Simulated assay, not measured.
Amino acid sequence: MALVGFGTWQSWRWWSWAKAPMVVTDTAPLVQLAIEPGTSVDRIGQDLAAAGLIRSTTAWDVWSRAWSLRRDLAGDPGFYQAGTYALSPNQSLPDIARVLWDGEVEEIGFTIPEGWSIRQMADYFAAQGFFESEQFLAAAAQIPRDRFPWLPDNMPHLEGFLFPETYALGSGQITPALVIEMMLTQFETVALPLYQSQSSTLALTLKDWVTLASIVEKEAVLPEERARIAGVLDNRLRIGMNLQVDPTVEYGLGIQQTPDRPLTLTEVQTPSPYNTYVNPGLPPTPIASPSRASLEAVLNPEVNDYLYFVARYDGTHVFSQTLADHEAAQEAIHDARSSPPSSPIIP
């Protein structure tokens, strides 16, 4: 009995040592560990030991077998999941096993601002090192109607339907297709119900709604002006007047004007399917990803008599009912911008 007891005590002491956390400081940095699909339990143990996260690969193997049996009996026939994990040497072996089993991968967040185009998104993802911009553009040219049957027909790409939001993904899961699926799902959750709730009275198709909202998004700087701008655009469409909005010209030409470099007359007159100065109606697709606020503004535009608006370069606009008032406002803004600031009078 003494030998058995001694042996049991020795085994308990070894097992307690093996499952205890590594002796490290409280400020020990996290260790990033990548597990590829199909990696064996033995290989995972070797990688954990090499990273200084566990002491014994034998203990890892024994614990993994026991853990697998226990979870299987509990009706959870899972296994360690692939992905990239952020682990601490302070974690015990059982805690590490649980993290890998439950797939608590390290998450990487990304934020798509309101008003971004697909091209801006692609460049952003490339700059973050997620994937090449051309990979994203190619994926955004695929219209997954099997998964999202509400997407409009005859769409050359998903411009406007990739909802701007902050997202989080497991670091081992980031692909253009998965990112796009998340953004379309968010549109389906947030934006689509807005349209469907008013579709019986709304004269706009889903694509036209998003297209008009994308123009409002690019034109409006202040939230309180969204509905007013939407009202102006609605007025123009109702009387058959060209929309005449600069962002559509910029989108068609792949350029962006600035206060110091506005669009030229030649650019405004350059033929393009997106040029709303020369083409009546809406452009063929959205020109950016509109926010919920812009989508709501198009559903509930301000009722007004304005047909024109011009930016003051401080975020606000001057709204006019007549062309004469509009041209006067343009001239006043130009003069104010061209005039040098007055010098203080020094006695």
Results as ranks from 00 to 15, higher is better:
Met182Arg: 15
Ala49Pro: 08
Phe148Thr: 07
Val41Cys: 00
Pro347Arg: 08
Gln91Cys: 02
Leu53His: 13
Ala230Phe: 11
Phe79Ile: 01
Ala20Gly: 10
Gly5Met: 09
Trp60Asn: 00
Ala332Met: 14
Val105His: 02
Glu134Tyr: 03
Glu224Asp: 11
Ala28His: 08
Glu224Gly: 09
Thr58Asn: 10
Asn275Gln: 04
Leu253Asn: 10
Asp76Ser: 04
Trp12Arg: 03
Gly83Ala: 01
Tyr251Ala: 05
Arg145His: 09
Gly240Phe: 11
Arg145Asn: 04
Phe79Ser: 10
Ser339Trp: 12
Ser56Thr: 11
Tyr277Thr: 06
Glu159Phe: 13
Arg43Met: 11
Ile239Asp: 06
Asp102Asn: 13
Thr276Cys: 04
Gln321Phe: 05
Glu104Cys: 00
Pro286Gly: 04
Gln32Asp: 05
Ala227Gln: 14
Val303Phe: 08
Asp26Ser: 12
Asp61Phe: 06
Asp26Leu: 13
Leu282Gln: 03
Val216Leu: 07
Leu212Cys: 10
Val268Asp: 00
Ser16Thr: 13
Ala177Ile: 08
Leu307Ser: 03
Val4Ser: 13
Ala86Met: 00
Tyr80Leu: 09
Asn275Val: 11
Ile44Tyr: 01
Gly52Gln: 01
Thr189Gln: 14
Ala168Gln: 10
Arg119Val: 09
Thr189Glu: 11
Gln256Thr: 12
Leu69Pro: 00
Ala141Gly: 12
Pro144Asn: 06
Val210Tyr: 10
Asn235Glu: 05
Gln91Met: 15
Ala28Thr: 13
Asp335Thr: 15
Tyr80Asn: 01
Thr166Lys: 13
Ser342Asp: 02
Gly45Pro: 01
Pro301His: 06
Phe319Glu: 09
Ala329His: 07
Asp26Phe: 04
Ser199Met: 14
Ala97Pro: 10
Pro164Asp: 07
Leu158Phe: 11
Ser342Leu: 11
Thr57Tyr: 09
Ser40Val: 14
Ser343His: 05
Arg238Phe: 01
Ser88Asp: 01
Asp234Lys: 12
Leu73Glu: 09
Val303Met: 04
Arg55Asp: 09
Thr8Met: 06
Lys218Ser: 06
Gly78Phe: 10
Asn300Ser: 15
Glu267His: 04
